[in-house]
Design a protein around this nucleic acid. Structure first.
Lengths: 177, 177
DNA sequence: CATAGAGTGTTACTAAATAACATGTCAAGG
DNA sequence: CCTTGACATGTTATTTAGTAACACTCTATG
């Protein structure tokens, strides 16, 4: 059974690129995922839960094999499907995202809130943030509709520099001058 | 040497999802690539040229290994770097695009024209079309700027159904009724 | 308490990508 | 003319991603 339930509205909009209380941020996301899974009658089993926790440790995207290594070290299965199944579950439920540019996965920073983010991938520190994507998605939709294409899914990913890394880059190029 | 040159303006805007004279479409793209490479002092060598021709045969995205198989059969090298190097060259020069969602490559339908397309990937026929992406990119840029992120590159990819496949799907679901 | 379905684990394999190194080609400068 | 260096092509070998297929276990339900 999987009865639809309004998502919790108390998930704070965490500014990933800003300093923040990460422990609290991760706990919140985990709690939200737990609540949603329970409400939907889905099982956030040990592997799945642990996988989410691992992703939540940082705001980086992690490869499936990197996750697998961690899981294996903690006594879970050591074969690829173990990681892929857990990750696929998390992605399906919206607790994590697949970052196609990196062939990797990142925890969702706002689980439960209905969002279609643009992913911002910093090439300096590898952080992945989610920016509101409604406008961008509307524009993609419009461009597609204009040629008769029916969009089912869209991935909007931007690579570049986060504020901190851009600042650092500017500072070091100053130093050279 | 690599002097910048204004791109040729005579590349027709081919509607990939519409019926079109594909031989002419492919020839045009190849000619444009040749002209651009010559103008920029770059070498469109046999492997590179052949790789582009292979991609141009269809409007599908092809995996590097699929391309490699073809190249090997024609007497070129049979190891992955052969294909990857040619493909990377084509992508760098804007003669082809990397489709991240598919881990694959597609020939550019409008080489030389300065474009930042949205890719439309049909799950029915695997065709990949390019739709104008200026608005969508502006929206992504705006969303990024709002959180202080500096965008360097963005991939905008939509998966769904092209007009023909959407029509076919509708027809078959009619048939069931 | 039987049993179907979901979940977890395995083996085995295919596909994608890159590192590191050897060889060939060709144009520019001595 | 011949050397030299840059670029291109080829190789071997390895890493990283992803999936198919099958066996076992647990658990909710009739």
């Amino acid at each position: 059974m999987s009865r639809p339930l309004p998502p919790p509205e108390d998930v704070p909009d965490v500014p990933v690129f800003a300093r923040h209380d990460h422990a609290r941020c991760a706990e919140g996301a985990l709690a939200a995922a737990e609540a949603m899974a329970a409400a939907a009658g889905l099982r956030l089993t040990p592997v799945r839960r642990r996988t989410l926790e691992i992703l939540l440790e940082s705001h980086r995207a992690m490869g499936a094999y990197e996750v697998l290594e961690r899981l294996a070290a903690e006594g879970f299965g050591r074969q690829p499907p173990v990681a892929y199944r857990a990750l696929d579950f998390l992605v399906e439920q919206g607790f994590a995202h697949r970052i196609r540019r990196l062939n990797a996965f990142a925890a969702c920073t706002r689980p439960g809130t209905d969002h279609q983010p643009v992913f911002l991938i910093c090439r300096g520190c590898n952080a992945v943030a989610e920016a509101p994507g409604a406008e961008a998605r509307a524009a993609v939709e419009a461009a597609a509709t204009a040629v008769g294409f029916r969009v089912e899914r869209a991935s909007l990913e931007a690579a570049g520099l986060c504020p901190a890394c851009a600042g650092a880059a500017a500072a070091s190029s100053d130093a050279v001058r």
